[in-house]
Simulated scan of single mutants.
Amino acid sequence: MTTSIPSSPKTRLARRSLLAAAGAALLGPLLTRPALAQGDWPAGKIITWVVPYPPGGSTDVLGRNVAQRVGAALGTNVIVDNKAGATGTIGAAFVAKAPPDGYTLLGTSIGPQAIAPHLMGRLPYDPIAGFEPVITIGTIPHILVVGANQPFKTLADLVAAAKAQPGKLAFASGGNGTILQMQGELLQQQTGARFIHVPYKGDTPALQDTLAEQVQFMFAPAAAALPHVQAGKLRALAVTSAQRLKSLPTVPTMGEVGMKDFVVEQWQAVFAPAKTPSAIVQRLNQEIGKALKDPGVAALADKLGVTLVGGTPQQLGDLQKADSAKWAKVIQDGNIKAE
């Protein structure tokens, strides 16, 4: 038989103190978590991923694929909402004005965030101060292409012809303020040649008229132009990436044909409204980064001609600021106006 000895008031007090201390030690990490703990967001609420372009483009298709995986990882639904118009600035303005609570995101590209603000005058949003960078999705190189029956065999041939006939040769783009237009403008500034810019409502019709030789050339997204180059319907004169493309090993880079500082790649990225809490931005960065490593996403990106990037919010912010300054100078030096 075991005999229990009644504890004294002092013993009971000491025991309670020890239990309280142990409990505080266990609960301490929970009590000191940030106000935005993992369970507080998204709390099952729907997240809207705004794409400022029509459905079907690479930004939309890849964004939907990534959004689906991010929703699964967060235990909620992420829906894609296409708010197209005004070179992507309508969707950007919508997100900039949204509550900074992590439930509205912008899946966009270089145009609305680094080019259009310098070309279109005053916009209803600040492309830098109005957003929190989240993550870079990927980059798309471009190919300078001409129709197969055009006489130009090299970039030098094209530039020489343009100088001999100032303002006669035309280049196509997917619209005013797009990166496709900016490359044509940069080519003029670096060579002194004068071209006519012909904007279209999207990259596809611009490419179709280049194929039909209604215009002399264009800077086309690699994935869109590549099948036509391989089929002999377009001739590739140069690529805008830093290195030659594996799919076009004999086509030189713009740098190799004498164009300095002509590494141009169209990036896709995700932004949140300014003042979105850092904890939410970091969680989004983490989950989107994981999605970019998914084999299914990688396979889709390869088909779309997108090189997946990822990285930190700071790296995206630095990329945006650098490109914004670059294209602001091109626009100012060329006295380029929205047409």
Rank of each mutant, 00 (worst) to 15 (best):
T76G: 09
A35S: 10
A301E: 04
D101Y: 02
K246M: 13
T276E: 07
V239P: 00
G88I: 06
R64P: 00
S4W: 15
P55A: 12
Y103F: 12
T3R: 14
P313R: 04
A96N: 05
I143C: 10
N285W: 01
L245D: 03
D261W: 06
Q286C: 06
Q190S: 10
G202R: 06
R15D: 10
D40K: 09
P9M: 11
A279N: 03
P9A: 15
A14I: 09
L245T: 05
Q150H: 00
D203N: 13
A338E: 10
Q320H: 07
A299Q: 14
T307G: 14
A24E: 05
R12F: 09
L226M: 06
A92Y: 07
A236T: 13
I5H: 13
R12E: 07
P166S: 06
N285H: 03
P29K: 04
A298S: 15
F195R: 06
D209V: 06
Q208D: 12
P166F: 07
P313T: 12
Q208K: 10
F131A: 02
H228I: 09
A129S: 08
F219G: 04
E132F: 01
R122V: 13
A220Q: 09
T76D: 01
L304M: 08
A328R: 15
R16H: 12
L158Q: 08
G296Q: 12
D294C: 05
K201G: 13
D323F: 09
V134Q: 01
P124T: 07
V239K: 05
G28N: 10
D101T: 12
T204E: 10
F152C: 05
K275I: 05
G107N: 11
N65M: 14
D81C: 05
V281P: 00
F94Y: 15
A22F: 11
T178Q: 07
K260P: 15
V257I: 14
D101C: 12
V145D: 06
A224S: 13
T48S: 11
L169M: 13
Q332T: 14
I90M: 07
F195A: 05
G91R: 04
Q214V: 08
G71M: 04
Q332S: 13
V145K: 00
A231D: 11
V61P: 00
A223N: 13
P6D: 14
M218Q: 15
G39D: 13
S17R: 15
S247K: 11
K168F: 06
I140D: 00
V257M: 13
E132G: 01
A73Y: 06
G102W: 00
K321R: 15
L36E: 14
A269D: 08
F217H: 01
